[in-house]
Amino acid sequence: MNARTQYQIGAAELDVVLAMVRSGTLAAAGERLGVDASTVFRALQRIERGLGLALFERSRSGYLANELAQALAEQAEQVEAALEAARSAAQQRPDRVAGTVRITTTDTILHGLVAPALKPLRAAHPLLDYELHAGNELASLTRRDADIAVRATRRPPQHLVGRHVGPIRVALYAAKKSAIKRVDDLDPATPWIAPDDALPDHPSVVWRKRRFPKVQPAYRVSSIMTVMELVALGLGVGVLPLFLAAQRSDLRQLGEVLDECQTELWLLTHPESRHLRRVATVYGHLAETLSLD
């Protein structure tokens, strides 16, 4: 009991716990910390022995953090943010913004909105670097896997700081050279392109299954960008965001905007990250320049 009460967890131990909570495996935690998996394993053993309590539930799939580990990770994130802010303040000149900003979004929003918006920012702040994560899964801002998220959602997480960019409107499209000119031209033989497997709850998937319940997509793809490219090639019809399709001259809109498929675009960050100069600079720029019109 005396050993447990005398044990004092330090910054190095918090780093180990945070890496394990974020990654869930010894190997991935080691990559984050720059050490091998056996070193992480021994460090974790020392921490749990010193605390006299387990922090993770071991399984074949990895290490599942318990409530204590999650609580320690939250404290570690605060330490991490404070150190990052201190280093930034110490290293940067007052007139320069520098560092790496991690942005998570989907490939559709990245190519259609975020990347074009970042181009002028690069000229204004050449010392800024960007890590751009494009995927359907939302990288965790709470775990600091990303600094900024640009996401389509009707209900953004309450623990994040958010700015509503605007509504994402969609419509059904075909290739410009296609014989299909309007929705009435569709028949049971018309091939469809859809992201069923990757995005089973996507509004366009839900709408198609309700409006055309007998349709079986000829092509199931992993992203809306791929839907657009296949539609443009004339391989079938598909539902696309107006902001993305409007940039293409090889697509034709079939019918009116699908109001029931509308979702909202949000620019999000974590309350502890928004005050960092590099994050605030990029967040403010995106808030001013992102437009769905």
Rank of each mutant, 00 (worst) to 15 (best):
L64C: 07
A73Q: 06
S88L: 00
I109S: 05
A69D: 10
A124L: 14
G52H: 08
T108E: 15
D107Q: 11
H125W: 11
H111G: 12
A71L: 04
R96G: 05
G50I: 04
A98T: 10
V101A: 03
A76G: 08
A115W: 13
A86Y: 07
H125V: 10
A90D: 11
A69M: 11
L113E: 02
L72I: 06
Q91T: 13
A115D: 15
A123P: 05
A86L: 14
L83F: 04
R122E: 15
R87A: 00
T106Y: 07
A90H: 11
H111L: 15
G62N: 05
R58D: 02
L51F: 03
T104E: 10
V79L: 13
R60Y: 03
L72E: 02
N66D: 15
G50M: 06
R93W: 02
V101N: 06
R87G: 00
A124T: 15
L118D: 10
V79P: 01
T108I: 13
E67P: 03
P116H: 10
T106L: 07
L121I: 14
A82H: 14
A98P: 08
V97D: 02
T105E: 06
G112A: 08
A86S: 14
A76T: 01
P120S: 12
A69G: 07
T104Y: 08
L110E: 09
A81P: 00
L110T: 07
V79N: 09
R102I: 13
P126D: 09
Q70G: 01
T104R: 04
L127F: 07
E57H: 04
G99H: 08
L127Q: 08
Q91Y: 10
I109A: 08
R96Y: 11
R58A: 02
S59Y: 04
Q70M: 09
V101Y: 01
A89H: 14
R49F: 08
A115S: 14
D107G: 13
A89K: 15
E74P: 05
Q75Y: 03
A81Q: 01
E80Y: 05
L55T: 00
R122W: 15
S61T: 15
Q70D: 01
Q91R: 15
L72R: 06
D107W: 03
A117Y: 09
L51C: 03
N66V: 14
P126S: 06
R93C: 02
S61F: 10
L51N: 01
L64N: 04
Q92D: 14
L72P: 01
L68V: 14
F56C: 02
R96D: 11
S88A: 00
E74C: 12
E74R: 13
R93G: 01
F56S: 01
R102K: 15
V79M: 08
A117L: 07
L68S: 11
G62L: 01
A86W: 10
A90C: 11
L110D: 10
A124G: 12
L68T: 14
Q75E: 09
P94A: 03
A90M: 09
Q75P: 04
T100F: 03
L53K: 09
L113N: 01
D95F: 00
R49Y: 07
I103W: 03
A90Y: 07
L72Q: 04
Q75A: 04
L83E: 02
P94W: 05
T100L: 07
